[in-house]
Design a protein around this nucleic acid. Structure first.
Length: 275
DNA sequence: AATCCCCCCTGTTAGC
DNA sequence: TGCTAACAGGGGGGAT
């Protein structure tokens, strides 16, 4: 499932193929994903040159002089650059035809999303799409640290795991990395966010940064459906400590890992190592 | 303002 | 073996 490392892996994989290249046309095989596909994808984007491939939170932006394509992979989405003649498969919802270059045949940027929780929207030049307003800081930025989490969490009664996954608090931390970071920081996921000390939030912020940065170097986590633009899986899943290990032994102390649902999300933790 | 909870969707898997 | 039902997950949005 695409969390920040998977989206960043996608961005880095796409950039060499897309930068400076023109979009020749768009093919929409479905009118809607999570929301209707923005009409500008068909009416404005063709003919434009891609000047930058950016990521904000779990969103990808393809910047052009006429505006930006804004995409989210949802939970099962993937973007791949393929030879133009590649046969269409199930759930290939959107194609952007790319101009030929290097004397090669043309290529296509293909958006595949079986569960259709993703989106392909449009951001006009000089504007901020409403979905991007109100997002918290990037976890790998200097703004995000233990003091920030401590200050923001005072008085909050929601579980610290729910707090950490709130995209208005910090972006990019989904269910997998929230569980892993809390394990590394030794904090019980169900503890009220407002009842975690400053010292422990410093450990948590550090754990989030370390885990996300490391997962990016591993190409993200491939559980069921994540795949990078070149078709390679991610390798971080082999290194998960708690996520998906319900009932197995804690790698640190051997205690059986516990499972509960917090904020509608499956949560696994070690009741001995995490308090 | 914070929190809760439902919902979108479909491939996979657990359970009968 | 074959079916059904639960489950997974990001995150918006309405209700509380």
């Amino acid at each position: 499932m695409p969390e920040l490392p998977e989206v960043e892996t996608t961005r880095a994989g796409l950039a060499p193929h897309l930068l400076g290249r023109r979009v020749l046309g768009a093919t929409l095989r479905r009118p809607d994903l999570r929301w209707p596909i923005a009409p500008e994808i068909s009416t404005v984007l063709p003919g434009q040159r891609i000047d930058a491939v950016r990521r904000r939170a779990k969103y990808l932006l393809l910047d052009t002089a006429a505006g930006s394509a804004l995409m989210h992979l949802g939970m099962s989405g993937s973007l791949r650059v393929l030879p133009a003649a590649t046969p269409v498969r199930a759930h290939d919802h959107v194609d952007l035809a790319l101009e030929p270059r290097h004397g090669e045949a043309g290529a296509v940027l293909r958006f595949n999303d079986p569960r259709r929780f993703g989106c392909v929207l449009w951001q006009a030049p000089g504007t901020l799409h409403p979905l991007l307003a109100g997002l918290g800081p990037e976890p790998l930025s200097d703004v995000f640290d233990g003091d920030y989490l401590f200050s923001l969490s005072r008085g909050r009664r929601a579980p610290v795991k729910t707090f950490l996954m709130d995209q208005s608090v910090v972006v990019g931390v989904g269910n997998i990395y929230a569980a892993e970071a809390l394990f590394e920081a030794g904090i019980a996921p169900a503890r009220a966010a407002g009842r975690v000390s400053r010292e422990r939030y410093v450990a948590l912020a550090d754990a989030v940064k370390r885990i996300l940065a490391y997962a990016i170097t591993r190409g993200g986590t491939t559980l069921r459906d994540f795949i990078s633009p070149d078709g390679a899986p991610g390798y971080f899943e082999q290194e998960l400590s708690v996520y998906g290990r319900d009932g197995q032994a804690c790698l640190r102390c051997g205690h059986g890992l516990r499972h509960a649902v917090l904020g509608q999300r499956a949560t696994v933790w070690c009741a001995r190592c995490q308090r």
